[in-house]
């Protein structure tokens, strides 16, 4: 599977590390709600079809991105950078 890294271009997925479901909402560090944290750590929807997930381009720019991949066909329909560099880009 090839992933279009926004920084480096189309690269083989072996250059990346998978980061899991990107639709999970991480509770704030100040949250003491064990149920919310357990849901974040353990619960996954595991959809069939488009799936938003994190990938880090560790053997390239080391940036994090959210990739929309179809879990059935591996078609990638969207990629966007996340992290401090992404914030900077969008001004």
């Amino acid at each position: 599977m090839l992933i279009p890294c926004p920084v480096c271009g189309l690269r083989d997925h072996g250059e990346f590390v998978y980061g899991g479901d990107a639709t999970r909402l991480r509770p704030l560090i100040s949250s003491d709600n064990a149920e919310r944290w357990a849901a974040y750590v353990y619960d996954r929807r595991n959809p069939r079809g488009p799936h938003e997930e994190y990938w880090q381009h560790v053997h390239g720019c080391r940036q994090f991105m959210v990739v929309t991949r179809n879990t059935e066909t591996h078609d990638i329909s969207a990629v966007r950078l996340v992290g401090p560099w992404a914030l900077r880009e969008s001004g």
Partner: peptide
């Protein structure tokens, strides 16, 4: 640490 800085606390 990288994940936390990129995703949790950018």
């Amino acid at each position: 640490l990288e994940v936390l800085l990129a995703i949790a606390w950018p």
